[in-house]
Nucleic acid binder design. Structure first.
Length: 588
RNA sequence: GGUCCCUUAGCUCAACCGGAUAGAGCAUCGGAUUUCUAAUCCGACGGUUACAGGUUCGAGUCCUGUAGGGACUGCCA
């Protein structure tokens, strides 16, 4: 649709200039559904030249278009809107081009993009919030690739720090020789359980101290478990052998658990970054920039950046004892990423609770003279909340990723079995199907809303399989595939099939609009646009399928054309879902 | 106090650079299968786009203000 829109717009601009001598290229958009036509030129802006009534201008431009633009079959004017109807020859040419490999792809972008997403802490399992992050991150990668960009998928493991020591400490105290093999638990779940154990014990200590009259803030600092935890962090930083060995053992278990979840979810990273290897790198950079005058130092030795000119506050970048803080580490990681891959853009898929932090990071890097900082993009998304509010691991209200994947599988199985139309599938194929449907529903649920909006997930209500869902779209794929299976051996020649039915044109419009949507989604880093497009296309096909005979159409040529539209639909749906990291089943 | 995000039908979400009578799904009610997969389709019901101003041929969309919800603003990560 790119090409025709641009052509008509240019033609209209030329018509306006030849008629009135003014240079004004009108906007073009899809024609409103209640008016006849396919594309509409908006002529209101011509009013400012005082050339006469806009209706008269529309008539004149329309006549020119009809005369000189073969794609236009007829036109009508409503107020300042010039509605154009495209010719059957044009639609025939779309159909002829449709088999091209790049029919659904936008003009290629020449850029290298690094996308960092997921980035979990290694003290507890992945939860539903990460799943939204991964759904968005992976979809953005796939969309960018479809748009011709080179993509590097990066994941940063927050594998060191006080929170890691918490699970280590609890394991050291009560773990004995517990292990994933012995407990039968995935490594990340096992370690997560010890993290919860720590929090329980620690909270009890704090409560006891508070009851003995100590203020809560002091109690939180002075509780014995917390003191030991801080000591453990110091030991870790000093490289103390036993602490390091324990750290490595638990983290390796966690990584193995994460890997299983990533695989099941259909995700693989190109670049794994470990905070434990990079956390000190930012310090040198900060000290250099301090000398260069980008930062200032207080009397106690701490280093700060003043962002008052940008409407923000002062921000600490190095502690008085010379140790690093979160943003120091991020500076180091950013340098590291740039050095490794020199991406044109570096996208951070991180929840909107870090909007402020990411703003500070970008400004700080710019202040430090990092040219690559201009290419930093924070892809911010809303959190996944429960009806009761935020998920809190401490309170045990997190929705675990592995649990929800299993629940989706079970729900898909129950729904499929109830319908009972899968006799032709083997038990292996059925397992794949349940997984495909369960994840399709889940991922679509996570990707459908605009990333910026927060999502409320109610564990008591299962995610829908009907209506505006992933399942609906998958169903259309299965339906179209069924038609294609039955069409094998029929003549593929769609020549002379006669004028297009309006429902055929509606389908062709959806198919032709696809590449434009992918381009826009890549531009805006917004998978929801693809999600909506593929749904609209699926809905249109259901109408087409219901209203028109395909295999029993009047003539062989017409059968061939409608089969071709079905094949295109299946291809578009498969492609669109693949951009969302969702599988398209051939039967369901 | 400061920075930012969100608010559209009972519920969950759309609305392409500002464009025509704001559209879908769920729920409710009614209809469609001798025919290519009914996880579907068609219809009905449902709106002062939180509120008040402003900009203009035209505002859900842009600007200002107000209200409500949320996040951040730690020598935690």
């Amino acid at each position: 649709m790119y090409a025709i829109k641009e052509r008509l717009r240019t033609a209209a601009g030329a018509a306006v200039e030849s008629l009135y001598g003014v240079r004004e290229t009108p906007q073009i958009q899809a024609t409103h559904k209640d008016h006849s036509g396919d594309l509409t030129l908006v002529l209101f802006p011509l009013a400012k030249y005082k050339l006469g009534a806009v209706e008269a201008l529309g008539e004149a431009v329309g006549k020119k278009m009809l005369e000189f633009t073969p794609e236009v079959r007829e036109f009508n004017v409503v107020k300042g809107f010039l509605n154009l109807t495209l010719s059957d020859e044009y639609w025939q040419s779309v159909l002829a081009r449709s088999e091209d490999d790049d029919f659904f792809r936008p003009p290629p972008r020449r850029e290298k993009v690094m996308v960092e997403y997921c980035s979990p802490n290694t003290n507890k399992p992945i939860h539903l919030g990460h799943m939204r992050n991964m759904a968005i991150g992976e979809a953005v990668c796939r969309i960018l690739e479809a748009a011709g960009a080179e993509v590097v998928r990066a994941c940063l493991f927050n594998d060191r720090g006080i929170h890691i020591c918490k699970s280590m400490l609890a394991y050291q105290d009560a773990g004995g020789d517990d292990s994933p093999e012995k407990s039968g638990l995935k490594g990340d779940h096992l370690v997560g359980n010890y993290y919860v154990e720590f929090e329980k014990k620690y909270r009890a200590e704090v409560k006891e101290l508070v009851e003995s009259g100590i203020p809560e803030a002091v109690a939180e600092n002075d509780a014995p478990s917390m003191k030991r935890c801080r000591q453990m962090l110091l030991d870790w930083e000093a490289g103390e052998a036993r602490t390091r060995a324990l750290w490595k053992k638990l983290n390796d278990w966690v990584y193995e658990g994460f890997q299983q979840t990533f695989e099941r979810y259909g995700i693989r990273f190109d670049l794994l970054l470990y905070e434990s290897e990079l956390w000190q790198r930012g310090k040198t950079a900060v000290l250099q920039s301090l000398q260069a005058g980008a930062f200032y130092q207080k009397d106690d030795g701490s280093v700060w950046i003043d962002l008052a000119n940008e409407g923000l506050d002062q921000k600490l970048v190095l502690r008085s004892d010379g140790t690093t803080v979160y943003i120091t580490q991020d500076i180091g990681v950013a340098d590291h990423k740039d050095e490794l891959h020199r991406p044109d853009r570096s996208v951070y898929v991180i929840a909107n609770e870090q909007d402020y932090h990411m703003k500070v990071l970008k400004l700080t890097l710019q202040r430090m003279g990092r040219k690559y900082a201009d290419g930093l993009v924070h892809l911010s998304y809303g959190m996944v909340d429960l009806p009761t509010g935020r998920m809190k691991s401490r309170e045990g209200t997190v929705v675990d990723a592995d649990d929800i994947l299993q629940e989706m599988y079970d729900t898909a199985k129950a729904a499929t079995d109830e319908l009972g139309k899968t006799e032709s599938l083997s038990s292996e194929e059925l397992c794949v199907l349940y997984e495909t449907l369960g994840q399709g529903a889940l991922k679509y649920f996570l990707l459908k809303p605009e990333p910026a909006k927060r999502i409320v997930f109610n564990p008591a209500e299962s995610i829908d399989f009907k209506g505006h869902t992933g399942t609906f779209i998958q169903y259309v794929h299965a339906r179209a595939c069924s038609v294609l299976r039955k069409a094998q051996g029929l003549s593929p020649d769609d020549g002379g099939a006669g004028p297009f039915h309006e429902l055929e044109i509606a389908m062709l419009k959806q198919l032709a609009a696809f590449s434009e949507t992918v381009g826009e989604a890549a531009e805006k880093l917004n998978p929801a646009l693809v999600a909506h497009r593929v749904y609209d296309l699926a809905r249109e096909y259901n109408r087409f399928y219901y209203e028109l005979p395909i295999l029993k159409a009047e003539t062989p040529a017409l059968v061939a054309r409608r089969v071709k539209i079905s094949r295109l639909t299946a291809r578009a749906v498969r492609f669109g879902l693949s951009l969302l990291n969702i599988q398209a089943p051939e039967k369901m």
